[in-house]
């Protein structure tokens, strides 16, 4: 099996400071990889480089595209890249406001990606939007409400539906359960796990929450000062951390 994403030598500097340095990994279809570290560790810089929201200073990101074959996301034309971003890739933001159109109804939010790839039949678009709302447990009668009328957890579920409606193969998630109540987090985690399994999604999840990463990710990268200091199977890294920083991170988790 070929990796769906192969990153090598990803480096991004902010002037003199290092965002992330020489990072490489392979991600295989169906795999969920977590990136953990404290704020400023470079995990968001790395995610944004991978997702095409930041341009790295060096490196390559080979994506095994269903439409275009293996291609380097960094050298694709903008048109190809944005086409991929609407179809095979998806990005779930920490703050749903960054990933939703707050002035457009829930149905319109879900339908946008469909219309973006050429869907022009209202009834079909609406039907798909309804089925996705159901999958993310948003009541059908909220389809014409705007996300501003939704709770935080519902907004996040809507963002997920909006992203997954075109059946992407790789999803980037930035603290997907970040601003949510603990009770809401659990439901969202379960939803994400189910979708990842059913759709065979690959995902890269950035989080500082070790409990989230343990439940969601198959393997993790631990970052500090822009470097990957430890990597491996999630439960192995968390239960038998080798690097001093990882040990500190694991030891610092509050027990509920």
């Amino acid at each position: 099996m070929n990796p769906i994403l192969r990153a090598t030598g990803i480096t991004r500097r902010y002037g003199e400071r290092i965002g992330c340095a020489d990072i490489g990994f392979d991600l295989y279809p169906g795999e969920v990889m977590g990136i953990v570290g404290e704020s400023g560790s470079g995990k968001s810089t790395l995610l944004n480089c991978l997702a095409g929201q930041l341009t790295p200073d060096a490196g390559s990101i080979l994506f095994d595209s269903a439409q275009q074959g293996v291609c380097d996301l960094l050298t694709l034309s903008e048109m190809q890249r944005r086409t991929l971003a609407r179809t095979e890739l998806a990005f779930v933001h920490q703050n749903p406001r960054d990933g939703l159109r707050m002035s457009v109804s829930a149905g319109g939010n879900v339908g946008e990606r469909l219309m973006g790839v050429g869907a022009r039949h209202y009834a079909n678009i609406r039907e798909q939007a309804l089925s996705w709302l159901e999958r993310v447990e948003i009541p059908a009668d909220r389809i014409d409400d705007r996300p501003s009328q939704f709770s935080g957890g519902m907004q996040q579920r809507l963002q997920i539906a909006r992203n997954l409606v075109t059946g992407p193969r790789l999803v980037f998630m930035d603290e997907p359960t970040g601003g949510l109540d603990v009770s809401v987090q659990a439901r969202l985690l379960d939803l994400l796990r189910g979708l990842v399994r059913q759709m065979g999604l690959s995902a890269i999840v950035v989080t500082h929450d070790l409990a989230v990463v343990r439940l969601l990710a198959d393997r993790i990268l631990v970052m500090k000062d822009g470097q990957v200091i430890e990597a491996g199977l999630t439960d192995q890294v968390l239960d038998d951390p080798h690097h001093a920083y990882t040990q500190l991170l694991v030891a610092s988790v509050l027990q509920a």
Binding site: G232, L233, D235, Q236, D239, D240, H242
Partner: peptide, 9 residues
């Protein structure tokens, strides 16, 4: 046991 499961290196 944990090593046999890959949980410990």
């Amino acid at each position: 046991m944990r090593m046999a499961y890959g949980n410990y290196l």
